[in-house]
Write a protein that binds this DNA or RNA. Structure first.
Length: 607
RNA sequence: GCCAGCGUAGCUCAGGGGUAGAGCAGCGGUUUCGUAAACCGCCGGUCGUAGGUUCGAAUCCUAUCGCUGGCUCCA
């Protein structure tokens, strides 16, 4: 179908559509229909402005719509206002949308010269197809649509992009025009405001502003330099991660960054994963490769001794840095890079332990997400991909065990068909950040393949060798991507425990610097990351800069504080939390840090 | 990798065939101040890189590297 809106055609006059009376589902249905109609209007506008347009598809999408075209010349951003003006004319005219049902033969006649539409017609299952017309434009379309072009109340064309026909890079690239559309201008405005907020929180922008990390042409794209402040956040996350894993029965290990090519041939990476591998390097006549995954080192550690069923499960955890070749167009800040550190672990267990271990990992994953302030997430079960290793039975068995655990734990999940890794199926958890954007979070993969390829076994109660099962899992994903997610989730205003500088002591005049140092020492003794702004600047300037740096506690010291041996606390929200003793401020900050409280206020105000 | 756009000072940006500019940052000075930017001065760029067109290129053309928005892909 050229259009793919699931809702049904409504002939009702849009003017009678009381917004207040609409239920959320009805509203979504209406929005989908309206956005889809806007796509048709876009196509009509483009048709009237260009000759020889070949039409692709034009569906409604989240917040708006797009339409794909093949045009005689490339579109540039300057074309958008022109197309948009044409669309407004069509909307102003209030042209009715009309539907017709006809045979494929008739449709082929109408769409002669439209190769993409003809392709769609051929593939449609039914004998009859439907078309929609408004004004001079006719489209192959299942519908439904609004009654009239005049029903589009608030829209805007946003950007152009290339898009392969049917999303396949073997197909020709079409030009896609994106737009947003809402029921009212207010909703359109608030969507734009939300986007502006998202742009402010973008981790690439905040990464520079807060001096967290950088990427350099001289080093190469997708390769990250972590600055001191970003490194503090990373270290705090890593320390917390390690401690929690040790608590839960994992052993921390370290493995090399390169390994002989043969190892990667045995594992199947050379066959199934080559597009992501950096080319091998030759050392003393041997081929070596940068590791794209950490599993093989862990397998060899496991195999360094004969393991008994009594030893299992064995859980090896590593903050393992891996390198994968990503196509240049795919790179994005910290979220998609070429070298990254996974919070990886491999659990070697007996088949009867799989479900219990997966459940434990899910529990750990939930604990981690809650600690970092994520409460909204979606769970996906990814099944066998096209390129896979191993037998179908193994795939079925391991997929079933993942499914069992999800069901036993009563977790809502969706199936993501064909999205598993080449060696096994996986559970993916996608986090929603404070602005509702989703991020790839924890992932758990059951693997019967690598144990077979490497003969990973244990001696059972029966004295015989049995193949072990491996569970690959990360709970944060990678340090890079997770930090990107944290930066955007918190908008750079990290909770105290993660904040690179937890407290800034601000002496009002130079004569207060000595006392400020005393405060610094005292807090520093308490393990608080504290600094003194001892510049000969005005207090207002120091406050402003601490504020821009998003330091959770600004500790103001002047004559009053020196006299009373106290500190005046200013919080990031601008609130003056009053004068307190050094000891009491120190204790409160420590409590907030230890509690990993999400907001600095909690500990200061509620105690 | 593909399509489109963009690369000017550390950052944010102006300039668009006649030889480079602002604010912030940095540096030097003055100011010593009570909850988001004191004042004065100075330094700073072979305009991403390499070719080409031109009397003359930051400006036009080509190639290349990188970035941005998408497509594809993904920890």
């Amino acid at each position: 179908m050229s259009c793919s809106s699931p809702c049904c055609d409504s002939k009702s006059n849009s003017n009678q559509r009381g917004k207040l009376k609409m239920k959320p589902e009805e509203k979504n249905e209406y929005l989908g229909k309206m956005r889809h109609s806007a796509a048709h209007i876009l196509a009509q506008a483009v048709q009237s402005l260009f000759s020889g347009v070949k039409f692709g598809i034009g569906p409604a999408i989240e917040n708006g719509f797009y339409y794909d075209f093949e045009l005689p010349r490339p579109l540039t951003p300057e074309d958008l206002p022109v197309i948009e003006a044409k669309m407004r004319e069509i909307i102003h005219d209030g042209q009715p949308f009309t539907k017709e049902e006809l045979s494929k033969e008739e449709a082929r006649h109408i769409f002669a010269g439209q190769p993409f539409k003809l392709e769609l017609i051929t593939e449609l299952p039914d004998k009859m197809v439907t078309i929609y017309r408004q004004g001079t434009f006719t489209d192959l379309c299942r519908g439904p649509h609004v009654a009239s072009t005049g029903d589009i109340k608030a829209f805007s064309l946003t950007h152009i992009a290339g898009a392969y026909w049917r999303g396949d890079e073997k197909n020709p690239m079409l030009q896609r025009v994106y737009g947003i559309a809402f029921e009212t201008k207010d909703e359109l405005q608030s969507h734009l405001a939300l986007e502006a907020e998202a742009a402010k929180r973008n981790h690439r922008k905040l990464g520079r502003e807060l001096d967290l990390f950088s990427i350099h042409d001289e080093i190469g794209p997708g390769l990250i330099c972590w600055h001191p402040k970003g490194s503090i956040i990373r270290q705090v996350v890593e320390d917390f991660w390690k401690a929690e894993h040790i608590k839960r029965g994992y052993s921390i290990v370290y493995t090399p960054h390169i390994a002989k090519l043969d190892l990667w041939k045995t594992s199947g990476h050379w066959d199934f994963y080559r597009e992501y591998l950096y080319p091998p390097m030759k050392v003393e006549g041997q081929q070596y490769m940068l590791k794209p995954m950490n599993c093989l080192g862990h397998i060899l550690i496991f195999k360094s001794q004969t393991r008994s069923y009594r030893h299992l499960p064995l859980r090896y955890a590593e903050l393992g840095t891996v390198y994968r070749y990503e196509r240049s167009g795919a790179l994005y800040g910290l979220a998609r890079v070429r070298g990254f550190t996974q919070d990886d672990a491999h659990i070697f267990c007996r088949p009867d332990q799989i479900e219990g271990e997966v459940a434990e990992v899910l529990n750990l994953a939930q604990f981690m997400m809650h600690t970092f302030g994520f409460h909204d997430y979606d769970v996906f079960l990814s099944t066998r991909p096209e390129k896979y290793a191993g037998s179908l039975e193994m795939w079925e068995e391991s997929t079933a065990s993942l499914r069992n655990v999800l069901e036993q734990l009563n977790m809502d999940y969706k199936i993501d068909p064909g999205e598993g890794v080449f060696y096994g199926p996986k559970i993916d958890i996608k986090l929603k950040d404070a602005l509702g954007h989703t991020w790839q979070g924890p992932t758990i993969q059951v693997d019967f393949n690598l144990p077979l390829r490497f003969n990973v076994c244990y001696i059972g109660e029966d004295g015989q060798e049995h193949s072990a099962t491996m569970i690959h899992r990360t709970v944060l994903g990678s340090m890079e991507r997770f930090l990107a997610c944290l930066i955007e989730h918190y908008g750079g205003a990290f909770p105290v425990w993660l904040s690179p500088i937890q407290a800034m002591v601000i002496p009002i005049a130079d004569r207060h610097v000595d006392y400020a140092r005393e405060v610094e020492n005292e807090l520093s003794q308490g393990g608080i990351r504290v600094q003194v702004d001892d510049r000969s600047e005005r207090m207002n300037l120091k406050i402003r800069e601490a504020q821009v740096e998003k330091v959770p506690y600004m500790l103001i010291v002047g004559d009053k504080e020196v006299a009373s041996h106290g500190i005046s606390v200013r919080l990031l929200n601008g609130k003056d939390a009053g004068l307190e003793s050094i000891q009491s401020v120190k204790d409160r900050i420590k409590i907030a840090i230890e509690a990993k409280s999400q907001v600095a206020l909690e500990a200061v105000n509620n105690s």
